[in-house]
Amino acid sequence: MASSALPRRSNPGTDATAPPGSWRSYALEGVTQHLQESESLQVLDFGGLNQANLDYVTGLGHRLYAEDLLRAYDSFFTPQEQSSREVSNARLEEFLEQTFVFPDQSCDGALVWDTLQFMPLPVAAGVVDRLHRILSANAPVLAFFHREISGPVAPSMCRVTDSKHLSVESRPWKREIEPFPPRAIEKLFGKFRSVKFYLTRGNQQEVIARR
């Protein structure tokens, strides 16, 4: 796996092309470039579908599979499993089978946003492992990680405003999240061919991993 751990800072203040309320996302740019180069791709959005992402992806002629990964996690695992943040392998496998209903290497890109951080590490690792299985070669995964954690955090609703810009809103609930330093992220995406990091607004870590 090749990784580029040097953070590249995007400065929304100097980006005159940013639509109002949006900022430039270099990791998103990597994904949209991939989407614009190919046709009829199968793209996965795990952040809870919104109209902007739907319009953007289908507007390029691709199919969009949507699943709200956090809601799926909440409805599958019991409150006891969620509070202990430990799940058995059998339960994890059942969750993955139910959530990722795709043949191997049949998908061409995944928008994970910041969902991984809101699940216990074993579940997040299981999700990334399953993504590696269902994604085709060179397919990108876009993920965000909150860096400064002081108490519960609201998950993000990310909207693609154009090929380079995102607008992000907080969803209406908060919860404890897993800290993910860059080394942990590299380890999480260890099976992937490359991982690139970008530091963006709000001190979030943007990550683009390629299968």
Binding site: N50, Q51, L54, Y65, D68, R71, P172
Partner: peptide, 11 residues
């Protein structure tokens, strides 16, 4: 699709 609607599937 409105925000906070639950949708699982292909579009």
């Amino acid at each position: 699709i409105e925000d906070e609607a639950y949708f699982k599937g292909n579009v």
